[in-house]
Design a protein around this nucleic acid. Structure first.
Lengths: 212, 212
DNA sequence: CAATATACCGACCGAACGGTATGAATAGGC
DNA sequence: GCCTATTCATACCGTTCGGTCGGTATATTG
């Protein structure tokens, strides 16, 4: 079971490098337009290594979605938006955080799972489901805070915490699409402002104290 | 300038048939995964005909986006949601209409422009811009009604009619992504309900009288 | 009725595609 | 110190890709 050579200590992490290359390249070009050779070049591995670690290009797609789910889970778990005492503040801080990480390059800030799911939803159920799990698992991390904020205010009825959590992801995914179509990340931030406003209106929180 | 032959009267519409095939196939499989041969097969034309009408696959992509823009413009212009006297009612009727045309198959109800833009935003500026024009031109058709509804209620300040019109498209595009990822069109309808609720909260319209 | 332009047809091209077969290097278990 | 499993490397395969090209049929123009 040999991987790290004395002369080549970075040996053995070909799989990880391929997953990282997949994350970056697929976000930039899409899944179908990304060739196996593209990924091997970006990860500086050979085709033999690729098909040693992944049985097919589709299998790489599934693994990339799972890797995406794991790394983003860790990233958001460690983010500062969990700090506020009030649950609604945490939800609003989440939206503000999502807004703050939008940079100039869509390949940097957009979502691998959303991009791939949109592309392969009909042609590759395995990849689509892996992307769906990533997306809805992330959405679910908001549910507890939303639920608590609803209880605090005695809200209930037309909509559920789960539904609002999913809607948050809808707006975020849509924001990525619109930002790409308009070639302007500001369009994404603009919609996150509307999402923030929706939350405040739902929970009766004034807009004046919004963090800028 | 000959096209309709006596024996083959459907001759001459190869271009249109290719554009319709592009609309259907690209919505189902994406742009990169759709081959020129796929389109020729679906449109029952030869490769010679394809490259007679379109200089390249990219040119077909641009033409498909423009064709999409024209046909959807006509479709929405003729839709019944323009009937109400009150401008806010027209906006809410638009959202209800968008919800009503969501069927079981994403390839039927999703947006060609959004799908293509997400895929080619970095690799093909020409297609991306054609998709962007389609999207934002459609968004702009909502602006006048939103503006009028704002005037009616003396609303102004944090957000503009143009911004809210764009946000509407953000939610719709996001709804398509989430519906595909979750393999469930109901997820899209759910987010349109949240968008409806946001509009009512913004404009101080009660939710009880919502059409079902 | 010849000239011309349009609308196609279908065989073909080189490159790139996803995937495979074989084998070398390495390190841990015994 | 040998065996075995793992991690790659390299060369190659058949297919499909976007695109080209010479040719044909038809309708319009003068």
């Amino acid at each position: 079971m040999p991987r790290p050579t004395k002369n080549e200590p970075e040996r053995g992490d070909a799989r990880t490098r391929l997953l990282e290359a997949a994350r970056d390249t697929i976000r930039a070009k899409g899944f179908a337009a990304t060739s196996v050779d593209d990924l091997c070049r970006a990860a500086a591995v050979t085709k033999g290594a690729f098909f040693h670690h992944f049985g097919s290009k589709d299998a790489l797609g599934v693994a990339a979605a799972e890797h995406w789910s794991e790394t983003t889970s860790a990233f958001f778990a460690g983010a500062p938006y969990h700090a506020p005492d009030d649950p609604l503040d945490r939800v609003l801080a989440y939206i503000a955080f999502r807004k703050s990480i939008i940079t100039d390059d869509p390949a940097e800030f957009s979502c691998l799972a959303g991009t791939m799911a949109q592309e392969v939803h009909a042609s590759s159920p395995a990849i689509r489901d892996a992307c769906g799990r990533s997306l809805f698992r992330h959405a679910a991390t908001l549910e507890a805070d939303i639920e608590e904020a609803m209880r605090d205010r005695g809200l209930s009825g037309e909509w559920t915490a789960a539904s609002l959590a999913r809607h948050t992801q809808t707006v975020i995914q849509g924001a990525f699409v619109i930002a790409k179509a308009g070639n302007d990340p500001a369009l994404a931030r603009e919609s996150l402002d509307h999402l923030d406003r929706y939350m405040r209106l739902l929970f009766g929180r004034a807009a004046e104290d919004r963090a800028q």
